[in-house]
Design a protein around this nucleic acid. Structure first.
Lengths: 161, 161
DNA sequence: CTCCTCCGTCAGGCTTCCTGACGAATGGAC
DNA sequence: GTCCATTCGTCAGGAAGCCTGACGGAGGAG
């Protein structure tokens, strides 16, 4: 076993853990749809933009968006500034899905952080950034915990009195 | 970006680097075929065994093996001990492909080791093993270098006089 | 107005998996 | 020795996830 193979096992575990947490509430979500949410919220973006940042063709993204639209997660609305373009809008259900996804990935992240300890996790994070050609700062654990708590609430983001 | 997402970028880089190194000489090799070689050499194994250790159905493995057979990388031969079963045998070309694959993954491994340095790489390796639920010892760099050198030779493993 | 570019979409195809069903061979129960 | 459940590889069909090519409609520069 070499480094790439070993890393694949870890990725597979993290991916399926994330999907498994969301699956009971959103069984229509297929693995490929995660790419829609991997680079920030898709709300307000055009199909072409989403395709470009996910590294796929607009035809393929068209199918993914169509599936999510058929299942009530989003709808397409015309762009007032460019009548060729359509903007993706998350419905309430889509927003709920997005929060669930973020919470699930935060849970996995915190589980890994807890399992490795802060020092080793910091080394892992920096190494992955270098190997993956990215320079993201590690997210704040407190912020992740807040996201997890927020996802428990069904709808309104306003704090109860 | 969370840990799983970050790790995916690194995996994608490592995977495509491995495939790109082999592609010029073996353009018929599709990404899915890597799973055949990920758990040791497939030589002598049965379809059902290969499917089980790759975590897929025997029907799916049947297609992958069929593709490699059509392109001359292997053939099926009857198992003398069980006339229901067939054993996969690598041809000379298949053996050459296998050595190329091992060399390519060794090159990526050494590149990562060199980029991170021994200490950080050791932490990365141990962390990935824990997160992936595996306990593989890190391969010896000298052995990897030897594999890379061996893959340069076209056929005979005998050392020239 | 003309032409080139970009938008989303339709059509068709390939790859990579799946489930279901089948004939042939195995091997244990009796 | 004869059943019979199990296992072997395989065929058939289909879903998912990507691709290329082509198109009509709209934008924008000249």
């Amino acid at each position: 076993m070499r480094a790439v193979g070993l890393m694949q096992f870890a990725v597979e575990r993290g991916m399926s853990a994330t999907l498994d947490e969301v699956a009971p509430r959103h069984p229509e979500l297929r693995p490929a749809h995660l790419r829609l949410f991997r680079y920030g919220p898709p709300d307000g973006a055009r199909i072409t933009e989403l395709a470009a940042r996910s590294g796929m063709t607009k035809q393929s993204m068209h199918e993914l968006v169509g599936h999510l639209e058929r299942h009530g997660y989003l709808h397409r609305e015309p762009d007032p500034a460019d009548s060729r373009a359509l903007r993706v809008r998350l419905t309430d259900r889509g927003d709920e899905l997005q929060r669930q996804l973020r919470a699930a990935s935060a849970r996995v992240h915190l589980r890994w952080l807890d399992g490795l300890g802060p020092e080793r996790f910091a080394v892992l994070w920096a190494a992955l950034g270098e190997l993956g050609g990215r320079d993201d700062p590690p997210p704040d654990p407190a912020a992740l915990a807040r996201e997890i708590a927020d996802a428990e609430l069904p709808a309104t983001p306003a704090t109860p009195a």
